[in-house]
Design a protein around this nucleic acid. Structure first.
Lengths: 135, 135
DNA sequence: GATGGACCCTGTAGCCGCTACAGGGTCAAC
DNA sequence: GTTGACCCTGTAGCGGCTACAGGGTCCATC
């Protein structure tokens, strides 16, 4: 992989903390453009790919679904657009996270109650957790 | 569906708030035992099924993975066992929920920061959100 | 007894975002 | 020339459903 300083898929993976299979997957679904190939048919990535994949990783780490990542990438490809849409996508994701947080907090409360209603030492036939789970 | 007062799959679904396809799926993977059949090959459920599926629904609503639900069901089928295992499974799920909560809270903080660093009115080429997402 | 519509049956494929093979090819070092 | 690390394509699997397609059954109404 030394033709004109391109990165191999493994090197790109290391540079961005992404698995090789994931990179190929991103290419297949059009998140990452297909790179040039070497004579031996190896993928050869440039710095644009590193940057783009880094963007994808960060957005994914923030929980953005791939479709939203795709939309964000489309926006970065149109630098003259107004950026309200970017803002909207981020707020939408923030609200999604807040909804999930609220759901999980309810869940935690329920599970704490459940855990406290029986602390072992019984037979299953007598266990209040099991009782509580039956409707 | 009036042979000996059995419930049809649709009736069981309504009684437990479960989709018909989901019930068939639970049967396929062995979460719900296969019921009797009518002369016309319709599934015919009894009160044991209603109770068991209700249990599954409640556990699923609490976020228990199906494999854990299966383990809980196995325990209810052995009423003479000590119930420490039940307690353990609940605590494990509680901890899983707490881990997810911590992750999501970090995410929310990040997203709030991101949302506040640009409030529209720019061009995408100038947008600090996009900037912040590039590594 | 014919018809219509609501329900049911099986089997298979799709969703998301990867991940893990199988069965091969390529490349650099020794 | 042989090892061993990497790469290639293609396909299948994960969890937990959900959505068909292409049929069969049941019951009420005419």
């Amino acid at each position: 992989m030394s033709e004109k300083s391109g990165l191999s898929i493994g090197a790109l993976g290391k540079a961005t903390g992404t698995g090789v299979e994931t990179i190929r997957y991103y290419e297949r679904i059009g998140i990452l453009p297909a790179p040039a190939r070497t004579a031996g048919n190896y993928r050869s990535y440039d710095m644009g790919h590193v940057r783009r994949l880094g963007f994808v990783r960060k957005a994914r780490d923030l929980g953005f679904p791939l479709e939203t990542v795709r939309a964000l990438l489309d926006l970065t490809d149109q630098p003259d657009m107004q950026c309200e849409k970017v803002d909207g996508l981020v707020l939408e994701q923030l609200h999604a996270v807040e909804r999930k947080l609220a759901d999980l907090e309810r869940l935690r409360t329920e599970l704490e109650r459940l855990a406290n209603c029986c602390r072992g030492g019984h037979q299953v036939s007598d266990c209040r957790i099991i009782e509580a789970l039956f409707p």
